[in-house]
Write a protein that binds this DNA or RNA. Structure first.
Lengths: 239, 239
DNA sequence: TCTACGTGTGGAACGTTGTTCGTGTCAAGG
DNA sequence: CCTTGACACGAACAACGTTCCACACGTAGA
C-alpha cells in the first residue's frame, strides 16, 4: 500500500480496487472501514458536532495522528461517511407506472439515513458531489425520472433540487431535535408555546402570521417534508 | 445598560427598544452595530470561514474579549448577521395579479444577499427561525402568497421549502465558488472537464448519467435556481 | 540467521478557534 | 473629592485539526 494517504484516496476512487488480498492480519489494524464505522457510531450516539478526529481515534483506542495514515482530512472523513450512507440506499428498478412513489421512496430513505446520524447532512451539503456512491444514487434517481417520461433537463435539475432540499430539511430538523434535547425538555415540540409566541407578536406588523398561526405551527412528523416532496415531484410531472 | 449580555439579547428581541437616550459618547465605543458591520465586511471580503471572533475584533482594533460584552456567542453574532441581511430586503406590497413574480423577486433578493456574503447561508441554515427580522420576511412572503389565493397551509409550508432551498442553493454555490478560487483557476466552471469526467464513468453502471451528461452539466448562471423556483411556485399555484 | 528497510502507529506538539477571568480605565453620581 | 459601576482588553484555558518524529514490527535481502 502506498505511504501517501492522498494516493490512497485516489486509489479508493478507482472503482474496483482490483482484488487485493484481504490480508486478515492479526491484532486488528486500523483500516478505513474501521475508521468509518467508528465515526458513524460517534455521530449516531453523540451527533455530528461530537465528530472529532480525537473522538473517533478514542473510539478506536488510539491517538488522532493514527488516522492520518488512512484519511487525508476531516473533509475526507466526511466524504467517506456520506459515501457509506449512500451505499446503503436501495435503488429500485425503474417502474414507469410508479415513478413518483419510487422517487419519494428514495428521498425518504435519504432522509431517514440523514436523521439516523444527526447533523451529518451538514457534511453532505458542504461536499462536492464528486463521490462515486453519490453518483450512483443520482444515476438511480435519474433512471426513475426518465422512466417516468420526465424531460432530461427537468430530471437532472429536479434531482439536484430534491437532494438539496432533503439535506437542508434534515439539517434543520436535526438541529431542532438536539436543541430540544439539550435545553430541558421539549422546547420546539411544544406547539402551544410556539403558537402563543406567534400570537404575541405585534398585530400591526404581523397580520398574516397571527391570523394563520395554526397553519404555521401545523404538521406532525414529516408532513412538511411529504408536502414539499409531492410539490416538487408533481411539478416535474407536468413539464 | 445591563451588564449581562444575555439580557441585552433579550432586550434586542423586545421589538421597540423603547427610546433610550442615543447617548452619543465620544471616542467610538464598541456597539452591536459596529460589530455587525465589521463582521459583514469580513465575510464579504474573506468569506464566512474567515469570520472569527478574532478577525472581527481585529477589524475593530481590539481583542476578542471585547466583543463578549455586546454579543453572547458566535451563534448570536450569526443571528445578528442574518437579521441584518433580512432587514435589507425590500418586501413589495402584495399584488394578486403578480404574486408569482413577487415571490420569485423576494427569493432572488435573498439569494443575492447570501451570495454577496459567501458562505453566510450556512449560518442561516443552522439557525432557529426565531429572529424578528426573519419573521418579517416570512410575513411578507406569506402576504404575497395569500394574495395569490394560495391555500394557507400550502403557503406556510411552501415558504418554508423555498427558504430552505434558497439557503442550500447559496451554500452550495458559495462553496463551489471559493473552491474554484482556491484550486488554481476555474475548476468547477470548466464544463468540458466535468463533462469529460462524466462520460469517463463505467458505462455499465452509469448509463443514464452518461447519456444525459450534457443536461447534467447544463445551465448558465442561475438557470438551475430559476428552474427550481418556478417549479415550486407553479406547484403552489395549483393546490 | 542476522540485518536493513519500509510501513503503520501514536505521543507530543503547533497554530487556531471560541470563551472566560481578572485587571485596568474612565465617566457619572453623591 | 471619592466611590461606584460599566466597559475594554491582555492573558489564559480547553478543544480543535494537523504535523513531526521516534518507536515497533513484519518482511526481503545478504
Amino acid at each position: 500500500m502506498s505511504a501517501d494517504p492522498k494516493q490512497r484516496r485516489a486509489a479508493r476512487h478507482a472503482q474496483p480496487p482490483a482484488r487485493s488480498a484481504p490480508q486478515p492480519s492479526r491484532k486488528a489494524p486500523i483500516t478505513v472501514a474501521r475508521i468509518t464505522d467508528a465515526a458513524l457510531e460517534v455521530v449516531a450516539t453523540e451527533g455530528y458536532d461530537a465528530l472529532t478526529m480525537r473522538s473517533v481515534a478514542g473510539a478506536l483506542g488510539t491517538g488522532p495522528a493514527s488516522l492520518y495514515a488512512h484519511v487525508v482530512n476531516k473533509a475526507d472523513l466526511d466524504e467517506l461517511l456520506i459515501g457509506r450512507l449512500c451505499s446503503e440506499l436501495v435503488l429500485p428498478e425503474p417502474d414507469p407506472a410508479a415513478w413518483r412513489e419510487q422517487i419519494r421512496g428514495v428521498c425518504t430513505q435519504i432522509r431517514d439515513q440523514y436523521l439516523k446520524y444527526p447533523g451529518i447532512s451538514r457534511a453532505a451539503l458542504a461536499m462536492a458531489p464528486t463521490d462515486l456512491e453519490i453518483m450512483r444514487v443520482s444515476e438511480g434517481m435519474l433512471a426513475i425520472l426518465l422512466a417516468g417520461d420526465v424531460a432530461p433537463q427537468a430530471a437532472t435539475w429536479g434531482i439536484d433540487a430534491l437532494m438539496l432540499y432533503v439535506a437542508a430539511y434534515c439539517l434543520e430538523t436535526s438541529i431542532a431535535h438536539q436543541r430540544a434535547a439539550r435545553d430541558d425538555v421539549a422546547w420546539v415540540v411544544d406547539r402551544d408555546e410556539l403558537l402563543h409566541r406567534l400570537t404575541a407578536l405585534p398585530a400591526a406588523s404581523f397580520p398574516c402570521t397571527i391570523r394563520h398561526a395554526t397553519e404555521l405551527t401545523a404538521g406532525e412528523g414529516h408532513d412538511r417534508f411529504d408536502f414539499t416532496l409531492a410539490l416538487m415531484v408533481d411539478g416535474l410531472a407536468h413539464r
